[in-house]
């Protein structure tokens, strides 16, 4: 869009006004909540992994996978019964950053788009939010692998 200088000045002036009159999120409080809830989720993961090592005698990496799967299961359950989004509203990044955020991003659209059918609704939309995570995660791992093959650091 071609904009005259006057219009641009108007836009700048308005942006300042909006910045001044829009209430700010409370950064300190948000961080504190994210910190303790996120820390607690990691602690839970640690306990599950240790339990899996002790009682199922799994090696460390398998125990960590077991912890991931358990956290994903708990997230799916809490999302299903409609509790997870309330916790997330309080905790913000505290639930987004751990694997719980990834799981919730898969489970919630799967439920949401059920009315559109099992194939095009649940099946297709399962990845609407978490899809990018897999795309960029898998793509980065392939790049790391290829680089490692050629460079071998």
């Amino acid at each position: 869009m071609q904009q005259s200088g006057k219009k641009q000045a108007l836009i700048r002036e308005y942006a300042q006004l909006v910045r001044r009159l829009t209430p700010k999120s409370q950064l300190g409080l948000g961080c504190l909540r994210a910190f303790w809830v996120g820390g607690a989720i990691c602690l839970l993961g640690q306990w599950i992994a240790e339990a899996a090592q002790r009682w199922l005698s799994l090696p460390l990496s398998a125990a960590q996978t077991a912890a991931s799967i358990t956290l994903v299961f708990l997230t799916a359950l809490l999302t299903g019964i409609g509790v997870f989004d309330r916790i997330a509203r309080y905790a913000g990044a505290g639930t987004v950053v751990p694997i719980t955020g990834f799981a919730n991003a898969m489970v919630s659209p799967a439920m949401e788009f059920k009315p559109e059918g099992w194939v095009l609704g649940t099946g297709a939309r399962l990845f609407t939010i978490a899809g990018p995570v897999l795309v960029y995660g898998i793509a980065s791992s392939v790049i790391v692998g290829i680089l490692y093959y050629f460079i071998r650091w």
Partner: peptide, 17 residues
């Protein structure tokens, strides 16, 4: 919500505005 934002059960925070 589902059209413009997120599924109902998706956990996110709403900004003050």
């Amino acid at each position: 919500e589902r059209q413009y934002r997120f599924p109902l059960e998706y956990g996110n925070q709403r900004t003050p505005a």
